[in-house]
Design a protein around this nucleic acid. Sequence first.
DNA 1: TCCATCTGATTGCGTTTTGAAACTAGTTGA
DNA 2: TCAACTAGTTTCAAAACGCAATCAGATGGA
Lengths: 173, 173
Amino acid sequence: MDIEIRSGCPINLTMEVLGDRWSLVIIRDIMFGNRRHFRELLNRSEEGIASNILAARLKRLMSYGLISKLDDPSHSQKAIYSLTEASIQLVPMFAMIGAWGRRHLPVSEDLSIRAELLEEGGQPLWDEFMADLRRIHIEDPIGGANGTVKSPVLARLTAAFLEVRAKMDAPAS
Amino acid sequence: MDIEIRSGCPINLTMEVLGDRWSLVIIRDIMFGNRRHFRELLNRSEEGIASNILAARLKRLMSYGLISKLDDPSHSQKAIYSLTEASIQLVPMFAMIGAWGRRHLPVSEDLSIRAELLEEGGQPLWDEFMADLRRIHIEDPIGGANGTVKSPVLARLTAAFLEVRAKMDAPAS
DNA sequence: TCCATCTGATTGCGTTTTGAAACTAGTTGA
DNA sequence: TCAACTAGTTTCAAAACGCAATCAGATGGA
């Protein structure tokens, strides 16, 4: 749960915190899929994460201040997981990671449309998206989780994704 | 040695390839430290990587096409490790990772000056650096390894690093 | 009230990965 | 000849991972 601090190099420290197969994938689901509950992160995970691994990662990310946990008023046992300012500032990094992956790895068309739009939008779109995320994760996490408060940028990204999906499912014309 | 392909998402795939504690640190040393031999990567590693882990990671990165290996003509047992076009294109990602780490993690001043300069320089500096890297890793890997061919950008980053180091070592004025 | 279902996890257990130290096998230069 | 250097491999213990089963409390409908 603690950083060993092999060295004070920014790249090394970032890899000590985020350098595993799951942490960034979980943050991605919270950020781009607005999955705010344990079960959403578990069952709707594209990659099929195990429940013990998810629990361990959520705990770890909380200890680093990358996500926060809040009781859901609608269900005393439910918890709402939210991004923090630190993880919201990962947006440009996600854009770069997505851009690189799209160019050099065997990505699928539907799952990479959001990365494409995020890359094309550049800094102005990233700023807009980060402002949205602050509203639905920091200012009103409960409204953000239950859908009362929405992110326009996220809505656009999701719409584009669903459109590509629909085209792929349709019979070839 | 092979990607499992849990999903075709660009972020997931990138994490499957680079999502461990060592891969990016090794590429960083080759890229920013111009360490081109096994021993340079092993003994002059800031983080103290073990030789078996280094050997395994080099093999893995080669299998993904992120580094290439070449016989050193000056010593029949020596190998020269070089970046490929794919890993050279990681430069903007490194810039973002460094920028994020510098803001949110306990980095040390000397080891983060290069990240600071890389961030400030923006896309123009990244393009210049990538052009340099192509010369010393792809066009003339042997000259790049033995120092006959140099990177002006790398020289500037290293000079700034050594300057900060010197200031830190000097007695407080 | 009863009970199936949902909540965020935890427990066991076998497999895989990691890490440190020692070691190998060959090369080089004095 | 020999010490130093080259790129790794071997060994073995510890940690992390992945899967399936399980848990205890909360909820909602009959």
